[in-house]
Structure formats: structure tokens, C-alpha cells
Design a binder for these strands. Structure first.
Lengths: 145, 145
DNA sequence: ATGTTTGCAAATCCTTTGCATCAGC
DNA sequence: GCTGATGCAAAGGATTTGCAAACAT
């Protein structure tokens, strides 16, 4: 079963309706599997010339809906704006340099210890889907005071 | 030396000018030592009837300036909006429940291991001033499936 | 058939900008 | 006096909303 079908299956189990617009947004997110802004999603859909483009408010509504269903993560990437991404198999996070802007991928296991500690000490179940950690990359940290 | 004087000292060492407006914003942030939105700062200043209120753009500019000087942190607290806070002695972070909205304070030491690991494995110097971690508090996690 | 979702347009909110005036050093 | 900060008004951009028409189930 394709990833798209899996998502649709989950949606149907929740009793959610599948519309053309929702299908297009999910497919756009799956196409790159990278994080996309609302605008990225919009452009990706418009490039498929055969389909009519969606109204922007609709994209906002669909992304919000997917986020509430915990199928999509929402992350503020500072200069890059707010990005959305399917919560899938390749969960990862980002180290963002405040000086040069470079973004370094880090594995989700980075948070294993912290998650465990939060659960043990505070009974808190952290939902860290796609985190951006700001700071200074090795190049910028060394060249600066 | 008061906390305010310490901050002013740092600013003067940077060659920054101290204006009435900047003083008012810093005092507002120090008054509660809690995180405040731009609006919170504005209202706090307006309540001191003896002083003229600041133009909103000025507050934005001053907070941005303090943030660049690493004296103030900026955090997106989801429903509560973007909040600012003096980076001071009592550094802490927040666990925010996605269900009931409760905010639990956690000590900065939570990130000690992660910071050390990021430095060692990626040469990355994380600047985690005031982080919000989303998830589910113990009450909401147990009552839900 | 019924209840939901979409499209459109407009409103709203937050934040930024340009420029003349004012103030700190 | 020089340089940079502020106030005002206006622009800008992203996101949300109301409502009628279209659609999924």
C-alpha cells in the first residue's frame, strides 16, 4: 500500500472526507517529503497544469486539519517561514545557524533521553515532530568571538 | 547593582544609546520577569499613567534590538503568540499541553546532555534561551487513548 | 439528502517601512 | 553637531472569516 493510501485509510477511519483538494495537498507533501511552506504547496499544485489550482484559504484549512489529526507537523524555521511536513518514517530535526542560516539535519534519537526524562520526571509526553534548534554552526562559532 | 543597571552597563559597553523608550521596555520586562507579548509590554507601560505611551513600532524595534544583543529571548508559544523575556538568572523552559493548554516550567538543565551532544557530534553551539516543548501533560495523556 | 468543504472576497491581525523630527552622546 | 532613535501614517504580508455554491458520502 502506498504512503498516500495509508494516509487516506487513516483519514477514512476517522470519518473524514477525501476531496480533490485534500488529495492534492497530501500528494504535494508526499512528492518531496521535505518541509514546505503554504506557498510551496500552492506552487507545487499549480505546476501540475492539468489540475485547477486551489484557493489559498483552502490550503491553510487543509494543513491545519492535517496538523490536528497529527499527520502533519508545523515548524517555524525563522527566515524560511512556517513549514509543514508529513509526519512519516524519516523523522528528523534541524539545527539552524543564527549567523549563516545553514540547516543541519539531526536524527530523532537526539531527543530520546529528553523524552524519557520528561515522561519520568513530569509525566509529560512530548510530541516533538519536527523541531528547529537555533544556535551557531561550527564554522560560525569558531570564527566569532 | 540592580538588574536594570547591569543591563544598561552591558548596553553602554556595546556603545548603544539609552533612551527613555528603551528604559521603559527593559523595565517592563524586568517588572514581571515573565514572558510578555508586544501587547503585554505596551499595556504595562501605559498603566504607568505618568509616562507617555510608546508607539508600537518602537516596541517592536526595541525588542528586536534586545534580541539581537542576546539580552532577550523570543519564543513562539502557539495560542499565546510570540513572547519576549529577559535572559536572566532564572533560565527555564516550558512544557505546553496541546490538549488543555497548561504550561509547566522546566529547568534549563534539561538540555545539558543534548547541548553537550550537539557540540560533540556536530560542533553546533545551541542557543536555547526559552524553548516551548509541545506534548500532552500527565492528566491529558492518561484520560485520552 | 444531508452535512461538509470549497471558493471568493474581504476583513483582520501582526509586523515592518519611509521619512521628517527629535534626542543621546 | 553628528548620528542614530522615535513617531506617525501607511504599506505589507500572512492568515482567518462569512457566506453561497458545490461536493462527498
Amino acid at each position: 500500500m502506498s504512503e498516500y493510501d495509508q494516509i487516506v485509510k487513516i483519514l477514512r477511519q476517522h470519518g473524514e472526507r477525501i476531496t480533490i483538494q485534500r488529495r492534492l495537498v497530501i500528494e504535494a507533501l508526499l512528492a518531496t517529503h521535505a518541509h514546505m511552506t503554504v506557498n510551496d504547496v500552492n506552487e507545487h499544485i499549480q505546476e501540475k497544469k492539468d489540475v485547477h489550482s486551489l484557493a489559498e484559504p483552502t490550503i491553510y484549512r487543509i494543513l491545519q486539519w492535517l496538523k490536528e489529526l497529527e499527520l502533519v507537523s508545523q515548524t517555524d524555521m525563522a527566515e524560511s517561514g512556517i513549514v509543514y511536513q508529513i509526519i512519516g518514517a524519516h523523522k528528523h530535526h534541524h539545527l539552524v545557524c543564527l549567523n549563516c542560516g545553514v540547516s543541519i539535519d539531526v536524527a530523532d534519537t537526539l531527543f530520546d533521553d529528553m523524552r524519557e526524562r520528561l515522561a519520568r520526571e513530569h509525566g509529560f509526553h512530548a510530541r516533538i515532530d519536527h523541531m528547529a534548534i537555533y544556535g551557531y554552526c561550527s564554522d560560525c562559532a569558531s570564527e566569532d568571538s
